[in-house]
Simulated scan of single mutants.
Amino acid sequence: MAGIGKKRVKRRTHLKDDPAREASIPKSMVVRAGASEVGKSLSLLTRDLRHMMEPHTAVRLKERKANKLKDYLTMTGPLGVSHLMVLSRSDANANLRIVRAPRGPALHFRIHEYMLNKDVRKLQKTPKSPNAEFLTPPLLVMNHFNTKSSKETPHEALLTATFQNMFPPLSLQSTNINSVKRVLLLNKRDDGYIDLRHYLITTKPVGVSRPIKRLLKGQKHPSDLPDLSGVRDISDFVLHGEGMSGVPSDSEAEEDATVEVLRPTPTKIEEKLLSESQLLKPKQQAIKLIEIGPRLTLELTKVTEEAMGGKVLYHSHVQKSEDEVRQLDKFHEENRYLKEKRKREQEQNVHRKQDKKKKKSKKNQPSDEHSGSEASEGGEEETAEGHTADV
């Protein structure tokens, strides 16, 4: 038992986090370049993107106007951040940069169209507000993306790998399918534009009458229980559906959206309402996707080798000849050599200053001891003179 005044700690039910597993999970950070200069709509888009990247992202991150990209890249190492999403605005349009922290490469996108979460909800007849769905990462679905590069499209493999590495991999052996609550869809069109959509996964039982569906739904949410004040017996509601409209609602799922899953242990209400044959059959559920936003239409414009500038690996609007490519490669090689040379010189200067400081401190140590001994002798003479004066 815990002592009086001590906090009780759970030792049997508390699961300790695995450091190796935590380090393998990719983490992201969504920031604005020039926090107060991007505008209100782009600031709201930043907030929506942070919710989309949950739970492994900094949701409550506060930027300052003076913060630069270099400041965020410096903090990615101590915080364990693997990807950095930077939103900025130019005179013509909005831009998105995805950086593999801390060194690169960096993918530059032009945002042609975007829609916020609140605008998506306004278009829906019965919008659904997410609750606990953001406690787990979304399921990434990519369409028309190439995993192999070619001479014409050398950036395809890098583009695909960047999006895949932004989310933790899904293992069918260890991942609980019931924990997957969201879907992030990336569709690459024929013109090269990328459509981003964010959906919420909802399931409904199939093969069960609508009155029983209402009762099963009311078990989880008591506010959804049907009003049986006008029914004399529960059998009239279950068998004949009295008090309910015979027309199916708009939210009823289509037949081609049904899947079969293993039936879990039935509840007491299911045992009473369902027959034995229904309990033995696999449980059929209808899957429906509800869009929660945001929407983005992206165009890949440039891929750079480093996080801040560096060699341009791909450009959608500028084509270089072979001679120009060789000249640029030579230029970047010279810059890389000069950068490494300056780094070595700085390290040598630091070591030289440290050695000089150590030698100086060693020289001062004997003089300090000698001065201390002289001070002690002077003190003894003063005490002797004081004794003679007293006599």
Rank of each mutant, 00 (worst) to 15 (best):
V38P: 09
Q327V: 15
V9F: 06
S249E: 08
L45R: 03
H221I: 14
F331W: 10
S245E: 06
L262T: 15
R47Y: 13
S249R: 12
E242R: 03
S149T: 03
H370I: 04
L96E: 06
F331A: 04
L139V: 13
L280A: 13
G379W: 15
M75P: 13
K358W: 13
Q348S: 12
K148S: 11
R336W: 05
N143H: 00
H315K: 06
K204L: 12
S82Y: 14
L184Y: 02
A157H: 11
L139D: 03
K7H: 05
R182V: 07
Q173E: 08
R64Y: 10
H108K: 01
L186T: 13
Y199Q: 04
V141N: 09
K357P: 02
G309C: 04
E380M: 14
A20I: 11
E255P: 10
S24Y: 00
D18I: 05
H144E: 01
R197L: 05
R342I: 15
E299N: 03
Q278W: 12
D236I: 15
T203C: 00
K356H: 06
A157K: 01
P211E: 02
L225E: 07
A307G: 09
R50Q: 03
V180D: 03
N117Y: 12
M142H: 11
N187G: 07
S88G: 06
K188A: 00
D224M: 09
L280D: 15
P264A: 00
E382S: 09
F163D: 12
G3R: 08
T175K: 10
F163K: 08
A94I: 01
D329P: 02
D17V: 11
A286E: 12
F237H: 00
R89E: 02
L184G: 04
P130D: 13
M166H: 03
K302E: 01
F237T: 14
E334L: 05
G293S: 03
N93L: 06
A94R: 07
M52F: 07
A253N: 10
K148Q: 10
G310I: 14
Q327S: 12
E305L: 11
A35S: 10
V231H: 00
L280N: 15
K128S: 13
G372F: 09
N178A: 10
A307E: 10
S36A: 11
V247C: 05
Q365G: 01
E152S: 10
L300K: 04
K353L: 02
D355W: 04
S321Q: 03
E333D: 09
T297K: 15
Q173L: 06
R295H: 15
N131I: 11
N143P: 02
N143R: 13
Q124A: 02
H56Q: 04
L184S: 01
T136M: 09
H155Q: 12
K204A: 10
F145C: 13
R342D: 05
R12W: 14
L225Y: 02
A384G: 04
V86M: 11
D91T: 08
E133L: 08
G293T: 00
E345S: 03
